[in-house]
Design a protein around this nucleic acid. Sequence first.
DNA 1: CGGGAAGTTGAAGAGCGTCAAAAGTAGTGG
DNA 2: CCACTACTTTTGACGCTCTTCAACTTCCCG
Lengths: 261, 261
Amino acid sequence: MDKSHDRLCSLESAAALPQATARLAPEVSPCSACPVRPLAVCTAMPYEDLKHLAAVVTTIRIGAGQPLFDEGEPADHCFIVTKGAIKVYKLLPDGRRQVTGFVFVADFLGLANKETYVYSAEALSSSELCRFRREELEDLLDRFPQMEKGLFAVAKDELAAAQERILLLGRKWAKERIASFLLMLSSRAGQNSQESDLVSLPMSRADIGDYLGLSTETVSRTLTELKQSGVIHLESKSKVRMLDRPVIETLAGGGELLLGL
Amino acid sequence: MDKSHDRLCSLESAAALPQATARLAPEVSPCSACPVRPLAVCTAMPYEDLKHLAAVVTTIRIGAGQPLFDEGEPADHCFIVTKGAIKVYKLLPDGRRQVTGFVFVADFLGLANKETYVYSAEALSSSELCRFRREELEDLLDRFPQMEKGLFAVAKDELAAAQERILLLGRKWAKERIASFLLMLSSRAGQNSQESDLVSLPMSRADIGDYLGLSTETVSRTLTELKQSGVIHLESKSKVRMLDRPVIETLAGGGELLLGL
DNA sequence: CGGGAAGTTGAAGAGCGTCAAAAGTAGTGG
DNA sequence: CCACTACTTTTGACGCTCTTCAACTTCCCG
């Protein structure tokens, strides 16, 4: 077995690296060198104030498949993903599972302000996150309204995205759900890569199913259907090439023409 | 036909009433007398600053069934419902409809910060709303951070609620969806009434179906089933009495015991 | 009181889930 | 390095929940 398989995440490189950096160059915070910052809400923080952000952040690592936190636990922390990807899900008593979201690099995790987490979170792959204590972050947001505005904007965007998902779950057919899913992954990951037709699926078929309100088998069947109709190509289990983006977009939008396809 | 059936809402009593009040007692804004304010985000605004809120608000009225705005229109306004109820929905090209939410008295409408509305809104019954120009409200929020904090909190709560709905739409059976729906309506409306077992359904069966991702017929059949098993009683088409709340709560939570009921 | 919309009920069918087994993949240890 | 094992994915057969279509009933409002 590799790494620590504790329930809580490994903290080896936690405050260690920041402190070391601080000793070498006290005026430069580790956040200012963070490659993820330009993409994350941290951009909203003025450059000269990044040291205050760095002061309240801890870097944590977590292995693939390990839980970050479980629904019902005291919601003490917020996170920003800096490496890897996280899945967020809710469970029903009999084990039915709904993945409510995937959290990728630069995304913020933990917006709900409840006493306890309203969902569980688990790493899809080996990941790294910036961790904030809730109270400390709140204090910081009071002092830096631009940062709070940034988070508010994130919340509004997520709200719009959630309504899109509600439409998907309530009214779209399996084929339309898969098409929407591919486009969502493409737009989330594709902005930095020129290979915008190649979508990588870092999660299992079961996770996709639980995200789209489908069974594993239906996800698999639908992907093969799309493959057989020439709309996509499966380069590997976790790499989908979109061959006919217009058709995928029409499907995703619930277009009436292409259902027989 | 009654009232004005214009596409845009009637503005008869718009700025008129506020001005009249202001003339009589310039130091008291109409917002300070608003019976809905204690329940709405406006509570976050300091009492002495309510005049600034009143300065940017317009009261509008809208008849039952009339549209407030349509998806795709420029998102120029935000609203707070002061009377009646609004339904918010998205459409697919072939007419499939998903009601993404119902907006009741004291609720804020229009949180998404997109150029255009990402959903359509229509009055369930004759309603009144406070209307804000987006830019003016933004300016106001910049000047009164407490108000912005209040709206941020609303956004976070709605996000948590949206994830609850995603679980419902993705993984719950029809009976569980109806049970969840009844409890949601009860908790939203029941706080002021002592008749907490009596839930009123101000929307049609079709609206309920489009909210829960079900057909009108399934909504009807499921309500009948619940009635026949003695869990609820239909006092009228739009008044449901919850006879066995524990069973309804277990159903809503996805409890494994009562599916055969 | 009557006409039209909303709601209910029934029967048949479709889409997707479930169960089961085969095929493919990845990680492990000899 | 390769075989063994365990898991993931795929594919097939069947069944169930919910939808669709249609007729009937109830309710509401002029």
